[in-house]
Simulated scan of single mutants.
Amino acid sequence: MGGHVIVWILLSVCSWRISAAQAQQPPRTDPVEVAALEAILGRWNKTNSPVWSMSGEPCRGVPVDGVTGLDGNPKNNPGIKCDCSYINGTVCHITQLKVYALNVVGQIPAELQNLTYLNYLDLDQNYLSGPIPSFIGQLTALTELHVGFNALSGPIPKELGNLTNLNLLGISLTNFTGQLPEELGNLTKLQRLYTDSAGLSGPFPSTFSKLKNLKLLRASDNDFTGKIPDYIGSLTNLEDL
């Protein structure tokens, strides 16, 4: 009986030591996201910024300091922020990505769809071309999407209507064609919509009547047709038109 007790005590101590050792290990970034980030920056011929390390572990330092935002440190560009609270603080996910005004050329990489925890994406003021990929509609955690001031073209994908957590959508100064998709009316949390000088045409979708939280709407310098919709008067939170 006494031997069993001793064995149980030894097993408990070993288990506690293993747990303690695991707890002391810093959290690791999801390897799928690490590979995606490396591929994205590689396609754009960019390296990580000097304030975070890319050596297989990007979620260290500034990305997790809880203080410095993406706009708080100009050196954090390309910039990321991470959330390391997953699986009892052992796993980090990349939640924000900024590649702003870095003269990036090319299309939006397919690897971006693997950053499924993104809530903020800023690709403004580059030379990105081609369409907005429909897979962007899979990044449903996004609250802000900035892709303006680029050479993006083609129709705006209806899949953007799946981003129901968006409060900001910026597509200004681009080369899109066609109409605003009716599906954008699903973005009922949207507060700021920038569509000026985006190459758009046709009437405003009737579904925009559902955007009751809209505070700012920029739509100048497009080829919109028809009259200003009556429902604009019912958007009582609108402050800037």
Results as ranks from 00 to 15, higher is better:
Val64Trp: 01
Val64Ser: 03
Gly66Glu: 01
Gly69Glu: 05
Leu70Asn: 13
Asp71Trp: 08
Gly72Trp: 00
Asn73Ala: 04
Pro74Lys: 13
Pro74Leu: 12
Lys75Leu: 08
Lys75Gly: 02
Asn76Cys: 01
Asn76Tyr: 01
Pro78Tyr: 11
Ile80Ala: 00
Lys81Tyr: 08
Cys82Val: 14
Cys84Thr: 03
Gly89Pro: 01
Cys92Asp: 07
Ile94Pro: 03
Ile94Glu: 06
Thr95His: 02
Val99Ile: 15
Asn103Ser: 14
Val104Ala: 02
Val104Leu: 00
Val105Trp: 03
Gly106Leu: 04
Gln107Tyr: 08
Pro109Met: 02
Ala110Trp: 06
Leu112Gln: 07
Asn114Val: 00
Leu115Pro: 00
Leu115Ser: 11
Thr116Met: 03
Tyr117Trp: 15
Tyr117Ala: 11
Asn119Gln: 00
Leu121Ile: 12
Asp122Thr: 07
Asp122Phe: 06
Leu123Gln: 05
Asp124Ile: 10
Asp124Cys: 10
Gln125Cys: 10
Tyr127Gln: 15
Leu128Trp: 00
Ser129Gln: 04
Ser129Trp: 05
Ser129Thr: 00
Ser134Gly: 14
Phe135Gly: 07
Phe135Ser: 09
Gly137Asn: 12
Gln138Arg: 07
Leu139Thr: 11
Thr140Ala: 10
Glu144Thr: 15
Glu144Gly: 09
Leu145Ser: 03
Ser153Val: 07
Gly154Ala: 06
Pro155Arg: 10
Ile156Cys: 07
Pro157Trp: 14
Glu159Asp: 14
Leu160Gln: 06
Thr164Pro: 00
Thr164Ile: 15
Asn165Cys: 02
Asn165Met: 10
Leu166Arg: 11
Leu166Asp: 13
Leu166Tyr: 13
Leu169Ser: 00
Gly170Gln: 13
Gly170Ser: 14
Ile171Gln: 09
Ser172Leu: 06
Leu173Ser: 04
Thr174Met: 13
Asn175Trp: 08
Phe176Asp: 05
Thr177Tyr: 01
Thr177Arg: 09
Gly178Leu: 05
Gly178Ala: 02
Gly178Pro: 05
Gln179Tyr: 04
Gln179Lys: 10
Leu180Ala: 07
Pro181His: 09
Glu183Met: 02
Glu183His: 06
Glu183Ile: 08
Glu183Lys: 12
Leu184Cys: 04
Gly185Met: 12
Asn186Arg: 15
Asn186Pro: 02
Leu187His: 00
Lys189Pro: 10
Leu190Met: 08
Arg192Gly: 01
Leu193Ala: 06
Leu193Trp: 05
Tyr194Ile: 11
Asp196Gln: 12
Ser197Arg: 11
